[in-house]
């Protein structure tokens, strides 16, 4: 039975976004983000690649809860200045207007603190995983979900992305392999394995079933 291309035909970015949003907003757990990593083959090397397909960022309690003692990993003033600069440049890139503004509201939004999880999500857009590397690659190549719950488990992972996730305040990262990619979910909460969630991902993202 033919599997449609995830990024082609009817499975375009709009439907992908809709599915990621449905997954997160409809979940009983509090997920911070969902990413779809799309599989492809590098034309030159022939290597298998998992690259950014699309993502939905909901956010966590890092902006909504009362101030907590700042984690040792919480960004410094210099790091915040860097993040804001990058965000301003990204706004320019998207809007096509120097300094990224279509009005004061955009400038104000850019000047708000860029949280650790927002930054982790943004950096994810530049990442890819070759031949089974990283949590998404491991999940895809083993055809088995990876569910890493707990800062300690993330921090001690052999995977750079998992360690990075812990540094940026995430407590749970899940990678669920599909025919043409991987759905990754992350949360600042500790969330234990749920068969319901994995079934929901497979129903939402496997069109041919």
């Amino acid at each position: 039975e033919a599997q449609p291309s995830m990024m082609g035909g009817f499975f375009n970015q709009d439907t992908l976004q809709h599915r990621l949003q449905t997954l997160i907003e409809g979940a009983k757990e509090s997920w911070t983000y969902a990413i779809f990593w799309n599989t492809s083959v590098d034309d030159v090397s022939g290597a298998s690649l998992l690259g950014w397909g699309d993502g939905y960022y909901k956010g966590g309690d890092d902006k909504l809860s009362p101030p907590l003692p700042r984690r040792k990993t919480q960004s410094s003033a210099a790091e915040q200045a860097h993040r804001r600069k990058v965000l301003r440049e990204l706004n320019s890139l998207i809007s096509g207007v120097p300094n990224g503004g279509d009005g004061e509201d955009v400038v104000d939004a850019v000047d708000e603190e860029v949280t650790d999880t927002e930054w982790f999500f943004l950096v994810s857009m530049t990442q890819s995983f070759v031949n089974g590397s990283g949590l998404p690659g491991q999940a895809f190549f083993s055809s088995a979900p990876l569910w890493v719950a707990g800062g300690d488990r993330l921090a001690s992972s052999s995977c750079e992305r998992a360690r990075q996730a812990q540094v940026f305040g995430l407590q749970t990262v899940v990678c669920i392999p599909l025919a043409n990619g991987v759905v990754e979910l992350g949360s600042t909460d500790m969330i234990f394995q749920s068969a319901d969630l994995m079934n929901k991902v497979r129903i939402l993202f496997n069109f041919s079933r």
């Binding site: 970015q13 976004q17 950014w52 699309d54 993502g55 960022y57 956010g59 902006k63 990058v86 965000l87 440049e89 990204l90 706004n91 320019s92 890139l93 998207i94 509201d105 955009v106 104000d108 939004a109 708000e112 927002e118 999500f121 943004l122 857009m125 530049t126």
Partner: peptide, 26 residues
């Protein structure tokens, strides 16, 4: 920003728009 390929632009634009909404509505 230079590391963000054209294909990511839609995701990025959506993220920035949602972020603006979150901050405006906070």
């Amino acid at each position: 920003p230079a590391a963000v390929p054209q294909a990511r632009k839609a995701s990025l634009a959506r993220f920035l728009e949602k972020r603006k909404e979150r901050i405006t509505n906070a």
